[in-house]
Design a protein around this nucleic acid. Structure first.
Lengths: 115, 115
DNA sequence: CTCATTCGCAACCAGGAGGTTGCCAATGAC
DNA sequence: GTCATTGGCAACCTCCTGGTTGCGAATGAG
């Protein structure tokens, strides 16, 4: 079954890395920031004030959707995208853990030195 | 001067995207997790139990260093890498902001509906 | 019905990311 | 002094990414 702790950890790493990878692009990060403002937006709306083509925006939205960061919904001839905050939360928690590990390590080092 | 809010926001987006991009790879994320355990490690140490070559690990470490996530220090013939938690903290705060925006948007929507 | 919007699909392209191998220099161990 | 470790540098390869253009299909507006 290979459900060892290290295997599970590796899975978590990969899944989390996918989220970070989706966020690791200025255009996509701006899209997420825009969508987190609240209202769902159509592709054309999102591409309107951008220097890029609608097609480029579409591709970025597909990347975000594949990572679970946004959701798609068709309304008439429009395709509306909305924020999906769960993976964002997961990513934030991952950084929480790493930061806490680091702090604890510094703490141990400090007590070791002061002893 | 072009120091408008939107320009500053775009800069922040790009800088933060660079950090996320550096974290957006399973190998690099594992390296960060490993280094956040506390002790600085040499390249050979980090590559020891990996399926990848030492060269590959070296490249990943260079990416992490360019993003400011780790720091390098030469000690004799070894090159020690250590965690640098500041950018991690920045990235986490960015996710905090996005999450809070989303929550507020949901709150506004709720009051709008209930009114 | 007609027509402008909105979008998806496919082909294509340049460049960068991830990885390998080979080789050489520096450095510590004995 | 000799030798094994350690790692930097460069060349090379493959594949994915980010972007474009062109075109055709739905779909709402008039």
């Amino acid at each position: 079954m290979s459900s060892s702790a290290s295997a599970r950890r590796a899975d978590t790493d990969e899944a989390t890395a996918a989220i970070f990878a989706a966020l690791g692009d200025g255009t996509r990060l701006a899209l997420v920031a825009r969508l987190s403002q609240g209202s769902a937006c159509s592709i054309s709306q999102l591409a309107e004030h951008s220097a890029l083509t609608r097609q480029a925006i579409t591709k970025h939205l597909q990347v975000l959707e594949k990572a679970g960061l946004v959701s798609r919904r068709k309304s008439g001839r429009e395709t509306l995208y909305a924020c999906q905050p769960r993976p964002l939360h997961d990513a934030r928690r991952y950084l929480d853990v790493v930061e806490r590990q680091w702090d604890q390590a510094l703490g141990r080092l400090k007590t070791f030195i002061e002893r």
